[in-house]
Amino acid sequence: METLKNIILSKTGIWLLLLVLAVVIPPMVGGYLTSMLILICIWTILCFSVNLIYGYTGQLSLGQAAFFGIGAYAFGLLTVKVGLGFWPAFFLAIVITGIFGFLIGIPALKLRGPYFILVTLGFSVIIGVVFVAWIELTGGANGLAGIPRPNPVPLPWGELSFESLLPMYYFILFFLIIIMLLFSRLVKSLIGKTFIAISYNENLTESLGINTMGRKIMSFTISAVIAGIAGVLYSSYNIVISPEIAYFAKGMDVVAYLIVGGAGTMAGPFIGTFILMALPEILQIVPSLNTLINGIILMLFLLFLPSGVSGGILSLKEKFSKKRIG
């Protein structure tokens, strides 16, 4: 009994409870809420990408929406215009996104602090413009249509098709869970520890024989790949994509999600994305006000709770346990 109680109250218990909820709730709610949950899952993945480069490596990138857009468009173009199948296109799209991350990372990460932030923002703006202006390739503002859902999976009792919402939701949830598990292993590994060390003190880390530039490029490339996966999933889910998805303000929104949830924590992307995406929905806020409200919430958090919700919970817990000892 005691052990059961411990499991329920432990961190693992909370994660398992959330997993169960994420699996059982969608069939019980309508399509609208399920589509909302799909978007929350996709943006949580994107938020993990910001978490790696900013939360864990200390380099604030405002350009993750651009990698999301590159992943989405690469997948869309490879399936619609090149005619590749779902999985080859998926794989190639994230490789392409990774290459972009690597190539942008090399010059951008030589810059520190505000200069790096500005370069990532500039990159994001440029990518947004390219998607609008390169009409022959991207279809311009009209966007790109006819992007496929995943191939149906043959099962003993019939075919599992992803044309309907619910299977698509589980498909995306599956990716979110895999990414989260790999992410948590990465940040606990020795390589992950060097990312964190860079965010703590870059010069000290370099003096300890770590090629900090190489590690920052590695982290940025992985973060681009994660953003690319989110983009591919979005592209396949939504069937059509248009340049707004890579709009630079999206890159800032996602940073706001992360800071509100708690940068540099595993729970941060979930908490922040959920709060900032679900809240406007619940409060019936006009979408055009979203960015404004995100900005205000972000400012309040930076002023009063810079470590975010999960950082706040952690320090509350610490205070509590200290009291019990003392």
Binding site: R185, I191, K193, T194, L208
Partner: peptide, 19 residues
Amino acid sequence: LVIGQALHAKSGLCSSIIG
């Protein structure tokens, strides 16, 4: 001091993630 040892680590990205 564990971070201090990181330069001696030879494991690549994949092997350290997969364990």
